[in-house]
Design a protein around this nucleic acid. Sequence first.
RNA 1: GCGAGUGUUACCGAGAGGCCAAAGGUGAUCGACUCAAGAUCGAUUCCCGUAGGGGUUCGCAGGUUCGACUCCUGCCACUCGCACCA
Length: 933
Amino acid sequence: MGEISVSDNKQWMTDRVSDSSWIQEFDSDPSEKEKCYINVAYPYPSGAMHIGHGRTYIVPDCIARFWRMRGRQVLYPMAFHVTGSPVIGISKRIARGDEKTVALYRDLYKVPPDIIDSFSDPLAIVEYFSDEYQRVMQRMGLSIDWRRRFTTIIPQYSKFIEWQYHHLYNQGRVVKGAHPVKYCPHCENPVGDHDLLEGDKADIIRFIFVNFEADDFQIPCATLRPETIYGVTNLWINPGVMYVRALVDGKFQLLSREAADKLSMQKHEVSITGELNGAALVGSMVSHPLCGSVRILPADFVDPDMGSGIVMSVPAHAPYDYIALLDLQKSGKYTDIFPIPLIEVQGYGEVPAMEAVNRAGVDHQLDPKMDQVTQEVYAAEFSRGKLLPICGEHAGKPVRVAREDLAEVMEREYGSIWFFDFDTHPVVCRCGSRAYVYILDDQWFLTYSDPEWKREVHHEIEKITFVPPEVRTEFDRTVDWLKDWACTRRVGLGTRLPWDQNWLIEPLSDSTVYMAYYTIAHQIGDIPAESLTPEVFDYIFLGRGDPQGLDRATLDTLRSEFLYWYPYDFRFSAKDLISNHLTFQLFHHRALFPDELQPKGMVVFGMGLLDGAKMSSSKGNVFLLDDAAEEFGEDTVRMFLVGSAEPWQDFDWRSDLVSSTRKQIDRFIGYIHESKKATGTNRIDAWLASRLQRRIVVATESLEYFQTRQALQEAFFGIESDLKWYRRRLPANMPGGSILQDLADVWVRLLAPIIPFTCDKLFGELGHGGPVSYAEWPEPNPGLIDPEIELAEELITRTVEDIESIQKIIPFTPSKVMLILAPSWKLEVFRRVATAEDRRMVTKELMKDEAMRKRGKEAANAIQQATKLIHGLPPGLVADICSLSFDEEVIFSEAASFLEEEFSVTIEIISAEESTHAKAGMALPFKPAIIVK
RNA sequence: GCGAGUGUUACCGAGAGGCCAAAGGUGAUCGACUCAAGAUCGAUUCCCGUAGGGGUUCGCAGGUUCGACUCCUGCCACUCGCACCA
């Protein structure tokens, strides 16, 4: 009767969610109230939401609900990021019937078949899942203002992005440059690491070609160490490889076919004119102005797929070259070639490569230690090496300087070009084709490398509130580390660059200031995009100019709405976005908005695990939020997600723990229902009331600091455990006083941000009108905090624990417990010891007292005992014992019947002075001597 | 490899110089209720102990201190990021 079970509650939730007033309950407009604007990184709706996403949106929801109850005007908006190319790939795969993709959408995301068919249109995917996201978010009770929903490809938003880039361009923050990218010639598109089948860890390395002159052509050798040209003794060519002659940028060159292919991808004119076997060149002479004539020697280790396929040999400093030369010379050939040292490095003799090889005991090229030896020599020379006199004008320079200088000389004087390649092979596109390094030469960049811009962002970071505070250093490091960012793409969905329509603005670059767009999103949806000129946005966001084509009243409304909400108070996101999105948005805000509108705070989330394993849609290791809500209930899912770990910690979804969360909610409902029957008063009511005030204080502070777990610990488990003790202390068969009704009233509000559905229903049952979402957050009543009664109760609990621990080890069933209370002079000792500046001097001090001295050894013992006791007590408790008044005799007399019942014994309370028991001397303040019989 | 972080008792997770054998939750065991199961409630859950005590623990190895889970050094393991990708 009147009890709601979980299943009833579920019906309630369903009703509540389909009730449209619930949906509009959180539409939020400027008001006289203080505002609180929080927002989250919006989702890319290419698939269904899982519990990891769930937490990302539920945590801010709890915070939003908390501040709303505290009287703030809260804005929590949501939109969908639709820019980019992933859905294009997905729709192509679905269109061609790729089984893995279709299975993912059909089986895991449970998309109906006819809808999957429509997914050959990429827009259909994002539209479907945007609606799905909204549906599930509403189901979960997220307190979002849905009027402000948009996607990033609507014309109005594009106009907003145009405004943003218009400014960035004028500020010189968007510049054109060449940029090497991983590229798939088959897809005719740059490929990101996630697009790769193999080689996703491969780095792009920049080599320089050193051109050696042969009879009627050049032989380029790729190197990272152009300074070693002074020590070249020969070239290596693979005699078993067919090389090509090619016209490269108008010059005849000989190189491997692979190298020719690669060069053609790197903005070089390459036409192949013939072939030549490597063996045919062995023994011939080539020359370079900086090293003179050298011979071409055969080497099987030369890989045509590395560099140009021909290698310049510096045996004095390159262990591979040294060993290869040695091998040849063992058979008596080329014994006239000697290593030519050009670098001196501390810790090595004249020929570092030889030394390192000998030291490592390497005697042939295939030794696995070779890579390590090479690394060692390179590192030593790079960090400590200096060029020798043989290097002419570069003599004496550190290697790291000479390297750059010589590269420049090569480029300028000797026609060298840069050559890009991967550090590891192979690199294969998802389509199965080999990927190459490709030079995009008209790519647009955001100049994040600009030192002045970085400096300004660092300055903002100093002022921002970070949760948790440790992430601040990570932001600073990211700012330092950022280079220019290629901000445009050829393919995908998005906004075109206003001044260069061939390019689209890339997804991470069109999502940096949309928090400002939210503030007006619901009001500009009806304005034709053509009217939304940069001047209009200047007026709205910067309060500048006199735009035509839109009436002033509208403009002023938009302007004031923006100014009401901005700057935002907190942005929430998972920690993996620190190194790009979260930092980018600081850069953009800094570039576009004045000081007073800069971001104020950021909350960074941990990651989600599912039964201890990382969640991953592609591996099928996900649990959909919708399914979770179905199986466990919305509030259970919410409570688990915000309560199992603090937001910034990783959380692990484990079904067994989730089930017990559900029981906890049921228990809570039970307590609230029981409270309705409570009437009258009891002695311990004041204690419960006092504790409750403290719970309110801690729960409130916790939520202010985004500690959802801590808040739940206090607001649920803390109150529950108080309640358990309270009921234990109630006289037998008493139902509990009307204090329980007050507690219920507070409790329901405290948990409302976390489990809103349950609390909303209970709130109504408790006789309140209106949704709990807008109920007042409980204020602690200082008048109800009663330290003395809490102290008295503390004495009881400690004594109960002591009796229990004695009872546990005695081998008989007790029938009587004697409590021997310490005499009042011991309390005096306790207090004086506790408050003494120097505890070692206490004995002396106390013994000055005539009354003490009369007690002699007894007093000295008491001082020692008290010192030990104080040492083992929490400092706060010691302070209370010193400052508050309490009468142990009264406290125990009042608790006697409780103790008798609790232990099924008779209780005798006696003061130490009256007792002759041997233990009577053990009695101390707050620690009576206990005798169990 | 580089950058940022983390490592606590069966598990998850508090604790940040003496309050600590270390909160809370989960699981497990025992007991109460019940015809029974479930739910709920109570107790126990590092080792020893016929008295509220003692012993060994907080990734590993050292160090500072009267005293370290807490501070310092080194090592090991794990997580996140490392770029054009949401």
